[in-house]
Design a binder for these strands. Structure first.
Length: 564
RNA sequence: GCGCCUGUAGCUCAGGGGACAGAGCAACGGACUUCUAAUCCGUGGGUCGCAGGUUCAAAUCCUGCCAGGCGUACCA
């Protein structure tokens, strides 16, 4: 598709007083396939040439010789419409897909450049809730999207394994904890302790004080505090890794906040040496008045650090280690101010690369009656959601396809896929209202819909073992076939746009579109029973569709079972 | 108070300044002796929060207001 677009630009460049870059941005996709594949609106030109847009488009249509890429170039009112040579577009698209295989749609534009992606970052000692799912799946998808554009990606799990919450946990554990219970069900026990602490702290204000003191001891290397912290951390991490395995998520580094503990002193000193830090109300701060932001706190009154200190340290460390061209923080929108402050401090410190840091925010997951809160104990555990979705999928399989091999595995792939898609399907900046019925709905615009289309492609191909892979692009002339080809050809553009906007939902929407086009084709155009030449050509189209569905799903971290 | 985000069909949401604003769910009516009906086809359903402005052209950009969410110095 890119070739055709470039060709349209060249054809226009010969006739229109605009440079190629501008022409590329002016070209648009017509709302109806009847109106061709690209459209050039002539309004702007009308102003410069002091002529009617419709007249200009008609004149351009007369001057441009479309061949070989376009079968015709026609004026429709103020628009100049380009019609791709369908046979050529079909041939190019299919051969591109078969040549690229699992890398169809990939580019090498990012070659030699590095993107660091900070994502997931669950709080150790808190359960992995559906809130953490967002960062995890968005980050994972962005990782694969940037990888597809040729960037070297570094995925970092910046675990929340340091901070005042450990003081709270230690206090709670010393009072109410049970070592054996902790061994057996670590997350559950720690969660109970955490909730209990906050409930007790409402009446007993001394508890918070005690917790802060314990965290300070931890920072200063107190052996008992250290022992408990390590215990909590180790046990929790084991459980998290189980969830990551289920989701198929991997990280290049687990570098949590504690990882930077030893370097924090140097970071603070550096800020002080530059004369940026000052003491205010007993705390060490960097004033950001000039930026119109509240001050960034580096040390509390009691001398303990805050997460801003650790993020600052981490950013500097990562720049040294990875020399990144961009760093993405996939973190909730509620932390937008924190990142503004962080980036502002980096800039004040003279780091040019501060502008390469991007906060990629996402909306909260809420309930009908309010925000989900770890402290109040209203969290929904991700493992429960995944389990329920998989059970539901298993039930549907038992009903519709009881002979399916590997039933359990497929049920997991479909159930988990549905959960991931419920998250990635919509624009990440919007809040999501959590509803079981929605997450467990497998019809319409869902992952199972896409997976089902993929399974159908596999099924058809399985039933044509004699097909030798040959096809004739000229025979794919039905509207459903051509629509499908057009959509397949647009995959690369979807990837680029997803990367530009940091929105995996662009890929998700694209896949829904593609699956829809395929289902239309499936109902309208019989494959296996068509006459032999047409059959081969349709098999080619089916194989191409299968490949692109698979590539797209894998980019979102969703499995593509062959049968379901 | 100030800052950031959101406001499109009954519900959940798509809509890279452009040609009549689109899906899914729900409702109703059709299509399985035929490549898996987790599918497809059809019907109904809209002052794109409100008011101005920029533009040949605004759901889209700007300003103000309204509503909701989230932040706003020792949590992360």
């Amino acid at each position: 598709m890119e070739k055709f677009l470039a060709e349209a630009v060249s054809l226009l460049a010969g006739q229109v007083p605009h440079d190629k870059e501008q022409l590329l941005s002016e070209l648009e996709t017509p709302p109806d396939p009847e109106l061709g594949d690209f459209a050039y609106p002539c309004f702007r030109l009308a102003k410069i040439l002091r002529s009617a847009p419709a007249k200009i488009s008609a004149e351009l249509a007369g001057k441009i010789t479309p061949a070989p890429y376009f079968s015709r170039v026609e004026a429709h009112g103020p628009y100049l419409n380009f019609y791709c040579d369908r046979r050529l577009l079909t041939a190019e698209t299919l051969s591109g897909i078969f040549a690229g295989k699992e890398r169809y749609g990939w580019k090498d534009r990012g070659f030699g450049r590095t993107v660091v992606i900070d994502f997931s970052a669950p709080n150790i000692a808190k359960p992995f809730g559906i809130g953490h799912l967002r960062s995890t799946v968005i980050g994972q998808a962005l990782y694969r999207i940037y990888q597809a554009l040729g960037f070297r990606c570094i995925g970092i799990n910046h675990l929340g394994d340091w901070g005042t919450q450990f003081g709270k946990l230690i206090v709670a554990f010393l009072r109410w904890g049970d070592a054996q219970h902790l061994e057996e069900k670590p997350i559950e026990h720690l969660y109970d302790l955490y909730v209990r602490f906050h409930r007790a702290a409402e009446t007993d204000t001394a508890l918070e004080e005690e917790a802060r003191a314990w965290f300070l001891k931890l920072e200063n290397g107190d052996p008992e505090a250290r022992r408990l912290w390590l215990l909590f951390r180790t046990l929790s991490l084991e459980e998290f890794k189980r969830v990551y395995t289920q989701l198929g998520v991997q990280f290049d580094y687990y570098q949590g906040e504690s990882f930077f503990n030893e370097m924090l002193g140097d970071t603070v000193r550096l800020v002080e040496e530059q004369g940026l830090a000052k003491v205010s109300e007993g705390a060490l701060i960097v004033s950001l008045d000039e930026d119109g932001l509240p001050p960034c706190l580096l040390r509390k009154q009691d001398g303990a650090t805050l997460y801003a200190t650790r993020d600052l340290c981490a950013a500097i460390y990562r720049q040294r280690m990875f020399n990144f061209d961009r760093m993405l923080y996939v973190v909730g929108a509620d932390q937008a101010l924190h990142f503004q402050q962080l980036f502002a401090v980096l800039k004040k410190m003279g780091y040019q690369w501060a502008e390469k840091c991007v906060h990629v925010p996402f909306g909260l997951i809420r309930f009908k009656d309010g925000k989900m809160s770890t402290r109040q104990g209203t969290l929904i555990f991700l493992e429960d959601v995944l389990a329920r979705a998989s059970e539901l999928a298993a039930g549907i399989i038992a009903e519709k396809n009881p002979k399916l091999p590997d039933k359990e595995k497929v049920a997991g792939q479909v159930g988990i896929g549905a959960v991931i898609f419920a998250d990635l399907g919509n624009d990440r900046v919007k809040d999501i209202e959590f509803e079981w019925e929605k997450v467990l709905d497998f019809s319409g615009e869902t992952a199972p819909y896409i997976q089902y289309a993929h399974a159908r492609t596999c099924s058809i191909l399985r039933k044509a073992p004699d097909w030798d892979g040959s096809y004739d692009a000229a025979l794919l002339t039905c509207p459903e076939e051509q629509q499908l080809v057009s959509t397949l050809a647009r995959f690369g553009q979807a990837i680029e746009r997803a990367a530009e906007t940091y929105k995996p939902s662009v890929i998700a929407r694209y896949l829904i579109e593609l699956a829809k086009e395929f289902n239309k084709f499936y109902h309208q155009c019989p494959v296996l029973t068509a006459d032999s030449l047409r059959r081969a050509s349709r098999l080619g189209l089916v194989a191409a569709t299968r490949q692109v569905l698979q590539n797209g799903l894998s980019m979102l971290g969703i499995a593509a079972p062959d049968e379901m």
